[in-house]
Simulated assay, not measured.
Amino acid sequence: MQRLAALLDPFVIALLATVALASVLPARGAAVAWVDLAAQAGIVLLFFLHGAKLSREAIIAGARNWRLHLATLAVTFVMFPLLGILIGALHVLPRELAAGMLFLTLLPSTVQSSIAFTAIARGNVAAAVCAASFSNLAGIFLTPALVALLMGGSTGGLSWDSVEKIVGQLLLPFVVGHLMRPWIGEFVARNKAWLGRVDRGSILLVVYAAFGAAVVEGLWQKVAPESLALLTVLCLALLGLVLGMTTLLGRAMGLPREDAVVLLFCGSKKSLASGVPMAGVLFPAAQVGIVLLPIMVFHQLQLIACALLAPKLAKGAPGGEREA
């Protein structure tokens, strides 16, 4: 049932429907300014909620398991980017798609799905909460810095305007949300379900704005079907490689089984929820849609792969075979 839920994830279906809508009915004329304004408001809201959800207690508790968290951060922000550079050096994708592939490797890990799959695999859920939270917190600083360092030519460099957008739309809302946690934390926890829908609605709005602008600039004329197929193969190969490398790293470090599961799931994921708003801030509007294609493909593949993998790992836990 869990496998079927991942394969038929309603959010993925909504995402594909949004791309289709933006392809057929992109915002044009005066509507563009209103859609862009709404998308910017969605980005601010997303990072405000991310800050409000981050528990200070989880940060303090998680700091004790520093070997696991350093390993997860190293995979996310060192190993992944190196693989992204290697893929770019192959020169098999069009330039803008290759930029999107590299951008994918610079993103932080997911939160919800990393924790959910760790729980299914009977791993250390508390450590997964900390590892995913640390990754997203670090990503607010590290992802823009890595984009500036490795993709300066694609983004036009990290200008003062870009810094203002990063601070105003990403960092400041996150900090304000986290500082307000003592007053709104219970409300956020109590209304997790509908706030999750607000999260996803904001992402869909940014995706519509990004893809609409890209379609107007000739997105689907730039991306041939064979390029899209090759992109899917590369994303699948990247995911498989990282899953294998995190498994070997967990064994080499001598991590307990429960912590090795955390490294596997938190280290191998890339966050669409962070990638969409960050791309909107870091890249020119007409380029955002094509840059987001790789993370959208990778997002679906990681859901499917982990939905198949987590129940198998659960059987390896003490008593797992009996419960299965």
Rank of each mutant, 00 (worst) to 15 (best):
P277N: 14
R257Y: 06
M245L: 15
S268F: 05
L243C: 04
P225N: 04
A260W: 04
S274A: 15
K269H: 01
L248H: 12
V261R: 14
A252V: 11
R257P: 02
V281R: 01
L239H: 04
M253G: 09
V262G: 10
V281P: 03
L230I: 03
A224K: 11
S271R: 01
A229S: 12
L249V: 13
A279M: 09
L231K: 00
L228C: 07
L230H: 02
L255Y: 08
L231G: 00
K222H: 09
M253S: 11
L263H: 08
S227K: 11
Q221M: 05
P225D: 00
G275D: 07
G280A: 05
R257W: 05
V276P: 13
A279D: 10
L239S: 03
P256D: 15
L236R: 00
A237G: 04
M245H: 07
A273Y: 01
V281H: 01
A279G: 11
M253P: 09
L248G: 12
G254S: 14
R251K: 14
E258I: 13
A237E: 02
Q221W: 05
S271N: 04
L239G: 04
L236I: 03
P225I: 00
V276I: 15
V233C: 04
L264C: 02
G275L: 06
K270F: 10
E258Q: 15
E226A: 14
G250E: 10
C235L: 02
V261I: 15
S274W: 03
L255C: 06
P256A: 12
G250A: 08
G267N: 07
D259V: 12
L230V: 06
A273M: 02
T246Q: 06
C266D: 12
S227V: 09
L263K: 04
M253E: 10
G240R: 07
S227T: 15
A252I: 10
L249C: 11
V281M: 07
G250S: 05
L231C: 00
C266V: 14
D259F: 10
L264T: 08
V242Q: 08
S274R: 01
L249P: 09
P256F: 13
P277Y: 12
S268M: 08
S227H: 15
L239I: 02
A224D: 01
V261D: 08
L236S: 12
L249K: 11
D259W: 13
T246P: 08
D259P: 13
L236A: 15
L255D: 03
V223W: 09
M278G: 06
R257N: 00
T247Q: 05
T246D: 04
L263V: 09
A273C: 02
G267F: 08
S268N: 08
G267L: 07
M253W: 12
L236P: 00
F265W: 08
M245S: 13
V276T: 15
G280K: 03
M278C: 12
G240D: 08
V262R: 03
E226I: 07
L249N: 11
A224H: 10
W220S: 02
L231I: 00
V261N: 12
G244K: 09
K222I: 00
F265A: 11
E226G: 04
L263W: 04
P225E: 00
G244R: 10
